[in-house]
Design a protein around this nucleic acid. Sequence first.
RNA 1: GCCACUGUGGUGGAAUUGGUAGACACGAGGGACUCAAAAUCCCUUUUUCGCAAGAAAGUAUCGGUUCGAGUCCGAUCAGUGGUACCA
Length: 806
Amino acid sequence: MNKDYHPSSIEKAVQSIWRKTEPEKNKLLNSKNKYYVLSMFPYPSGKLHIGHVRNYTIGDVISRSNKMLGKNVFQPMGWDAFGLPAENAAIKNNVHPEEWTKKNINHMREQLQNIGILYDWQNELSTADPEYFHWEQWFFIKLLKKGLVYRKLSEVNWDPVDQTVLANEQVIDGKGWRSGAKVERKEIPQWFLKITEYADVLLNDLDKLSGWPESVKLMQKNWIGKSKGLNINFKSCNNDYLYTAFTTRPDTIFGVSFIAISINHPTAKSLSESNKYIKEFIKKYQSSKVSEEAMAKIDKDGIFTDQYCYHPITKKKIPIWIANYIVDGYGTGVVMGVPAHDTRDYEFANQFNLEITRVIESENKKSDLPFLDQGTLINSDMFNGVNSQEALNKISEYFVKNKLGEEVTSFRLRDWGISRQRYWGCPIPVYYLDDGTVHPVPEEDLPIKLPKDVDLSGEGNPLDKNEKWKNIICPRTGKRATRETDTFDTFFESSWYYLRFLDPNNKDEIFDKKLKPWLPVDQYVGGIEHAILHLLYARFFFKLLKDEGLVDNDEPFNALLSQGMVLKDGAKMSKSKGNTVDPDMIINKYGADTIRFFILFAAPPEQNLEWSDSAIEGGYKFLKRFWKLSYLIKTSHKNEDTSNDNNILIKTNNIINKVTTDIFERKSYNTAIAAIMELLNFISKNFEAKTMSSHTATKSIETIAKLLYPITPHICYAVLSEFNEDQALNPVWPEIFDTVDENQEVQIIIQINGKLRSRVDINTKLRKEDVIKLAKDDSKVQEYINDKEIVKLIYVPNKLINFVIK
RNA sequence: GCCACUGUGGUGGAAUUGGUAGACACGAGGGACUCAAAAUCCCUUUUUCGCAAGAAAGUAUCGGUUCGAGUCCGAUCAGUGGUACCA
């Protein structure tokens, strides 16, 4: 054993041993005791960043620790290879997206291997590989035939100069990132998947996910946003047109003082033809970004249409306004304005001097407007004095009975728009005949591959411009036809990759049904930023797969660890912000074990971690001390003094128990590491003071090597191979040692009126009365009690005594 | 704006079920070793007062519940993530 710790040579040697260990052939055919650990696969953006290292180290700790328990662990890795950055790189540096992506993948694979993550590399996949997206296209056609896919007009950010659709990220201050042109909203036909048909089951099945964080489930629940309410019809005063507004608060119906419609509402559009002010208003707000966030933050503006509709009960005339803050896709694009009881309506009404009528009174005292809670109805005709809860029912009944509206269940969730006007994505496998009809590509012609030779200038849609690829002959009729030039949203690929990981090279089917027992994923690990979209889409996709009979479970991910972000300068690390940290430099300087150790020690996995490189040295120092102590124990003369051994084993056992719960149950790696450090310090002191036998020292250092093995596997392999060579490659999780249980003394605290005043050591076997007597006799306590009366006494066994005195 | 989360020493964090706030580290200060440095080791390190024993204050802010609150409740402030075309 070398005296000094040389991580680079140790790590290289150990990694080469791991590589040489033959992967088990057809490992997945045996699913007994299976444990499927999945870390979210990366977008191959070029280099791994610290966020990746954190994610994959956590996944590896879970993998390796469960392997040490004897589980049959599967941990795959692959590449979410389609996406926008590849196209941006192509435009900027004139490299083909495929070439760029492949180069990145090769580099990042090497980086992952340098960190020492134990992946089943034989199951690697890339979503840009036609063998992968073949089955995505195949499945899409099944969904199309089932009627779960449809086309409709939908708004996008349009760059009028580059003649291209922009992602929200590419719109900066309302302008195109490349051209600088003012972005317009434009409606184009797009493909949608009917996720709303699954809204209820996606909501209800959240209850089955006991291994998920409550916060993620809550976010998904709120995102789906199921609400019961009323669609209320407001009849136009000019004609028979009905403005239908959805509300969850029919109890405020008497407070309606205006109707607001979106700038895309048919009425707004038709009025703009004859009214130049309305036309200008619409034009002004058509150039804002298409995002919920932008809409919600926009300064409210509106324009009166000069038209009215009737209040459905009072028949009063209500003005109709066009407002810039009404979202089209949500609800009906019509809002009934109740300023007294809605924040946004209140703001709008104040701005344009519209009537504000309070119709709900708070229970106790008068409260400020807008008043959002429920209460008692006032100014509401026959419903005065009724409370909100009751009024909701009564008013709904009234509306239904008089055919003025209907009860509806509404969801916030919208259908999933899956088409993108981009090159670097999976082609949508349909084509169009000249008569406009849409046809799926026959199964035997799949996969539809991307053409290599494309013009990636940043102007227009490369596939649409590629006449050679686009124009085809219909395989069924022999007529001229054109391919769909849209590609899939990249969330499409990441919605089912966990399935394909089981059988990535299968050329005949999406995966071999014999591998079904490996589902669902036992532990999924990934960033909290995916809490809603990716995880919801993947859950949805899994339900689609189930309905197709391809899988048997309800949910794809049994347990989820949603890891916090690694922030730099207070913000998410991303290439576009230029605040990434390259882990290579740290690995070169300190080794992979140090970076693994540090990243786990720095913060609990679920919390955000603000990166700073100053503290990493501490982890390195610890590993050096671990190495040095191992060396000393290995090489020093035998010591047969066993007098303190029992205490050392008791301490070791405590730490084994602590680390076991921290790693397997709490997933609290920072505290597990702190406990291991504490044990090393303790043993180190005793060993130097020669207060423990060599035999016990060996047992202790071996225990540390095993406890630390999932976290820093290279150094632990090297240490274990010195003490217990059989276990170096496949270590077994340590069990506690036999010890002599001595009478336990424990320190309890004594409080006077809840304030800590003294401590006493007691034997745990003492009776309550004796402990109290001991406490009362304490000199400090006597000083405080003096001749005061003890009003109350709190006794928590082995913890504390609290005297409440007067 | 809305939804979710977070806020504890100079810094990262610990306190697992409401019961000793600051474990374990980083940094800083002092010391040992050395010709010197690096490395290593030892001591101190929440703040204020005090030679000390000790006392008081203290977990973003304000308030509440409780014998007892970092932990529970209400309000406020700040930061982070998401907000449907970044992934």
